[in-house]
Structures are given as C-alpha cells and as structure tokens.
C-alpha cells in the first residue's frame, strides 16, 4: 500500500516534470520580443534590450529553464512583463477566485450527476433513462459559452434575477457572492453532469447485471438493500476516478466561463497572459493548473485504492 502510494506520487512528479518542460518550451516558441511587447513600439531599443536582459531573454534555453524551475521551487514564479511586478500574487488571487467557482460546481454536480446516473441505470431503456442519458450527452457537448449565453439572456438580461456580469467578488458578503456565482456555475455544471451521470449509469448497470447482484436478490433481500449495500458500493467506485479526471475539463471550462462573465480567475489570467505574451504569467498559470489536476487525480487514486478491498488487501492465500 505504502509502496503503491510512493510509486503513484513518483509517477505524478515525473508527469509534472514533463509538463513543465512542455509548458516552458511552448512558451519559448511564442513569437515576438517580450521586451518590445511590454514597452510598446515607441520605446528605445536599449530599453527593450535592458528589459530583455532582465527577463532572461537570449540566454541558452536550458539555463533559462533551470533558473525558471529553480525559482518555482523557491516559490518565485517569475516577473510579469505585463504588470511589471512578481507573478505570484496574481496567480494566488486568481486561483482563489477560480476555486470558489470550481468547488461550487463540484458541490452541485457530484450528487446530481451520481443520482441522475443511478436513476437512469435503474430504469434502463425507459423514458427516464433516455431523457437523462441523451440530455446529459447533449449538455456535456454543448460548449460552455453557448449555454452561458443562453443562461445570461434568460436569467441575466430578460428576467434579471441574477447579476451579470459577475465581475469581482471582493467586498461582497457570502450570500451575495453565491448570488454572483450562480450564473457562471450553470454552464460548468451542465458540461460535467453528462460525464458523471454517464459513468455512474454505466457502473450501476454493470453492477445490476452482475452475478453478485443476482445472488443478493435471490437471497431475498429487499430491493433497497440490494441497491444500497450490493450495487452502489461497487458501481460508484469507478465514478470517483472519473470525477477527478473531470477537473481537467472543469478548468478548461473555467477559462471560457471566466472570460464570458468577466470573472477574475486563473483561466482569464492565463488567457490575458497569452494574448499579451506575458510568458512568466502564462507559464506559472498553466503549471499551477497542471499541479491542481495532478493532485486531484492523485487523491482520487488513493481514495479508490482505500475503498477497493481488491487493491487494499491484495491477493494472499
């Protein structure tokens, strides 16, 4: 068990390292001169060169990479060429804002997604199932900005029940913050609902058709006990992993939703960094997203291992 955990963490670190290399070198091939990008077309060549030197442009790539990664390990994420100040505070604030949105989305989606999937499985092939399955599929493949537009038009513009645009939450009370987050969270929830419901449905159907479910039913157990004790325990296990991998999609959705609702999160931050060629900001933001994803899947894997006796106890005589 401990061995498995160490192995799993080791793998996550290797993956993270590969990711950092990809992110760094992708950032390096961005065209243009960062110094010029910052100072604008009318700055003097010497000023640009000085800023370039400050930013480390022109040194060998490997050296740049090492100093960048070294800085990261010491908590120094680099220097933003756009804001002319350290990157870290921006990233920290943005992550905090995004986390509010993401956590709210997950809190809503996990129970609904699982309940929807289980319900669909219990009525396989009937109306409830077709509605949930096809509806979920549709919801999960309509881009967030599309459902977002519809949501804004209905609730923000026509009915005016929720505030739009969302803007900044600072200084707002908790209920008011929640009020502001409702609209942007809807598109995220729609996309995730389909994935989680489909996984929960597939897992539950598999469990329902299993031999052990037959054993439980023919034992004379009441249906509710069969479902609770014998079906769900086995069917929801794989769903845990799926929820974790969905954090990737969730973050992708954040980029779009934050942009659409003018909400200052990590997605909007890296988007603006990309358009303004603010490499340090971009690289730091992307790497942080990678770390979040890694940690989420790591937690899910550990949870899965802990809950699954097959993995927890191992095969012994």
């Amino acid at each position: 068990m401990t061995r498995y955990l160490l192995r799993r963490i080791g793998l996550a670190i290797v993956t993270l390292w590969i990711l950092s290399v990809i992110v760094f070198f992708a950032g390096q091939v961005l065209p243009g001169d960062p110094g010029r990008a910052v100072l604008g077309p009318f700055a003097s060549q010497s000023a640009v060169r000085q800023l370039d030197h400050q930013l480390g442009v022109g040194r060998p790539l490997v050296t740049q990479y090492l100093s960048w990664i070294g800085g990261l390990l010491h908590g120094n994420m680099g220097f933003s060429s756009e804001y002319r100040s350290p990157v870290a505070p921006f990233v920290v604030t943005a992550i905090g804002n995004s986390a509010k949105l993401a956590v709210l989305a997950l809190v809503i989606i996990i129970p609904f997604g699982i309940a929807g999937g289980v319900l669909a499985a219990l009525y396989t092939g009937r109306g409830v199932d077709r509605t949930i399955s096809l509806g979920g599929l549709a919801a999960s493949t309509v881009p967030e900005f599309v459902s977002g537009i519809v949501v804004i038009i209905i609730f923000g513009v026509a009915l005016k029940v929720f505030p739009y645009p969302t803007g900044s939450l600072s200084g707002l009370s908790a209920p008011s913050q929640l009020d502001h987050l409702i609209l942007p969270v809807i598109p995220l929830v729609l996309v995730l609902f389909g994935y989680i419901a489909r996984m929960a449905r597939a897992g539950t159907i598999e469990a329902l058709e299993s031999d052990y479910a037959r054993t439980a039913i023919l034992k004379g157990l009441p249906r509710s006990v069969v479902i609770r004790r014998h079906i769900l325990r086995n069917s929801l296990l794989p769903t845990i992993t799926v929820i974790a991998t969905q954090t990737g999609y969730l973050i992708g959705g954040l980029v779009v939703v934050e942009q659409l609702f003018s909400y200052q999160g990590i997605g909007r931050l890296i988007l603006s960094a990309a358009t303004h060629k603010d490499f340090a900001m971009l690289e730091a933001g992307v790497l942080v997203i990678g770390i979040v994803y890694m940690v989420a899947t790591l937690i899910a894997d550990v949870l899965y291992t802990l809950l699954n006796p097959r993995l927890r106890v191992g095969v012994s005589g």
């Binding site: 299993s210 031999d211 052990y212 037959r214 296990l237």
Partner: peptide, 12 residues
C-alpha cells in the same frame, strides 16, 4: 451458481 467467484460481492 456456476461461477462462484463472480457470485460473491467483491467488496463485502
């Protein structure tokens, strides 16, 4: 049943 391994619930 025919396949005893599968007739038992794996997590109980």
């Amino acid at each position: 049943y025919q396949e005893p391994g599968r007739a038992l619930n794996p997590s109980i």
